[in-house]
Simulated scan of single mutants.
Amino acid sequence: MDLSKVLSKYQNIQATKKDVLDLLEQYRALNYRLDSYVFNDGSKKDLLSLTGTIPVVYKQNTYHIPICIWLMDTHPYNAPICYVKPTTDMHIKVSMYVDHNGKIYLPYLHDWQPNSSDLLGLIQVMIVTFGEHPPVYSKPKQAPYPGQSFMPQPGAGNASYNPSFPQSSNFPPYPTNNYGGGYPPYPPNPNSSNTPYPQSNFMPGMPSGFNSAPANNAGATGTISEEHIKASLISAVEDKMRRRIYEKVNQCQAEIQTLKRTKQELMEGQTKLEDIVRKLERDETELKRNIQLLNDKDAELTKSLTALEQNDQIDVDEAVTTTAPLYKQLINAYAEEAAIEDAIYYIGEALRKGVIDLEVFLKQVRQLSRKQFMNRALMQKCRQKAGLAG
């Protein structure tokens, strides 16, 4: 799929495209595609994802760590969201940089600057960080058959191979070493208890000048007593326990940080929910008040209708009452003027039908027009006296 089409909904297409192409030119084991990302609130959005592996050097061996980078549609103004994506033969190693879900936390992401931060720099920071703190380790496996490498080459038909990662001639070569010509396995489980001691004649924790030979063969190196062996074993056990405790403390601290972030998000969500509940309560109170007002008005109208139905005789002159004589004079003048206008209309209809002749029509219209003019003048004067609009 063309990268420009994939980025058609992004706000900064050219900047994002350049950043992605610069990264893919350096790390060809990464591929891009448009996929749906689900946020913490359950919402979904189609975002560009970069999926594949990056080479990480750990203890002089190169490991290919699978990752996934999601670019926000506001890239590069917002930092990407990064995950470690372990295959079926790996476990996530929780640390201050990776949580139990595989989400990556780096200072580079936290301090992301749109003008100075880019994907290439992000990958380089990941490589350095994961070189010191591997984010995954391999699951325990059975001993390989003679002549069999620890892990097969990609695409060799092994059931644990994950086909979701890119397979092409551009895949970075694996280093050759003493693992039967294949690439080395993923970093071993640091918490595993079956890691063997080095095959050597030296006791763990003993100086290189001492060995486990009998005392009469020690020669110039001195005599090894049971106290020496006991002290050596105690020192080895202490070192091993110290390393395990240190790793366990780091793991717990990383989990605590993750829980703190989750707690902060939950507290922010609680505040938002409380604001929504308070707003709903205010709306409910306002709605109840409006319902009560409508019920009162309905009762008033019902009472008025009942009174009108019981009163058969309605005095037309008393149907409309005024609060002052001036208003009554204004109403009477308006009613008379309206009656004169109707009379002029019907006289015109009588002339048109031949009921009256033109002379009678003109005489009556002249008289009625004079009265109409006087009534209109009276209304204008009453309105001025009452302070009403003209």
Results as ranks from 00 to 15, higher is better:
K5W: 04
K9M: 09
Y10G: 06
Q14S: 12
D19W: 00
A29S: 11
L30Y: 07
L30Q: 04
V38G: 10
F39E: 00
N40D: 03
G42P: 08
S43W: 12
L47G: 00
S49T: 14
V56G: 03
W70L: 10
L71M: 12
P76G: 02
I81K: 15
V84D: 01
V94H: 04
S95R: 02
M96G: 04
M96L: 08
H100K: 03
P107I: 02
L109D: 05
S116D: 00
S117R: 06
I123H: 00
I123V: 13
P134I: 03
S138V: 09
P140M: 01
P140G: 03
K141Q: 03
Q148P: 04
P154H: 03
G157D: 12
S160K: 07
Y161M: 11
Y161L: 02
S164N: 15
P173L: 14
N177T: 11
P185G: 00
P190Y: 06
S193Q: 04
T195N: 08
P196L: 09
N216Y: 08
N216S: 13
A218D: 00
A220E: 12
K230G: 09
I234C: 14
M241F: 03
R242P: 04
Y246H: 15
G269P: 02
R278N: 01
L280M: 00
R289D: 06
I291V: 13
Q292F: 13
K303A: 05
Q310F: 10
N311C: 14
T323W: 08
P325E: 13
Y334W: 03
A339W: 09
Y346G: 08
A350F: 15
G354Q: 00
V355A: 13
D357S: 03
L358T: 13
R366S: 15
Q372K: 13
Q372G: 12
F373K: 08
N375V: 12
Q380Y: 07
K385S: 14
A386Q: 09
A389H: 08
